[in-house]
Amino acid sequence: MDGYLRPRTLDDALAMLAATPGCQVLAGGTDVFPARTGAEVWLKRDNRPLLDLSGIAALAGITETATGWRIGALATWTEFCATQLPPAFDGLKQAARQVGGAQVQNRGTLLGNLCNASPAADGAPPLLTLDAQVELSGPAGGRVLPLAAFLLGNRRTALAPGEIATALLLPHPPEGAMGGFMKLGARSHLVISIAMVAGTLALEGGVVRHARLAVGACSATAQRLPLAEAALLNAPPDPARLLPEHLAALTPIDDVRASAAYRRHAALVLLQRLVESLA
């Protein structure tokens, strides 16, 4: 490996990033290192210098703010699970407990999961249903993007050259909102999702007043399903209101884990069960 940088401040990090073209940002390393191993099998060595964020104290921690919660770029899945949060965040916590095994949860960060932009990133669907925003910092200053605008495609994000994602911003969820997550894979632990769904629902007098549903691993990036959400609104929560056509925007693929047709079918079944469990 040709270089390794471990700045202590964000400013230093940005300066180093600007001065070291082609540098790769490193947080928990649970995506960075496996990718390097994979390339080395066929002697395709990835020699990009690493810019390790782990020494930057300002990027650590999960804090409550006036508008919601701020999840620092270094916050791990384990840290997130240990934080007291309203029930709307339960889906994200359920996802956190199913990302890899305990070793990966102890090291992997929520932001790393998003920056890596795998279609099967388990953090993406629950974060979409929580209206998460990504806070970025770069040579031109800071900006904040809604998660859906941050995730552009398979392994593609809106991160501009020289930019670092500094935090996830989660607004206070609506009163009474409940969150859930369901993941489908071919084994019990350490499994990349065939499909996964997340949702938050808030009821008022037995009627759905707030609904967010999202599906992952069924398109290049996880997606919210506005048609499905609309179908649930202003009625008692009823899984039967969710129909195949509400999932039309998904573009699942055939791969070693499952067929496209199965994914489309499973996503609907999981969504229905999720609504049932949140009702």
Binding site: Y4, L26, G29, F33, L50, D52, S54, Q103, N106, R107
Partner: peptide, 13 residues
């Protein structure tokens, strides 16, 4: 005290 995969941890950390 926390379990980690040593193959994914850079020594510097």
């Amino acid at each position: 005290g926390a379990q980690v995969c040593a193959c994914l941890v850079p020594l510097a950390q």
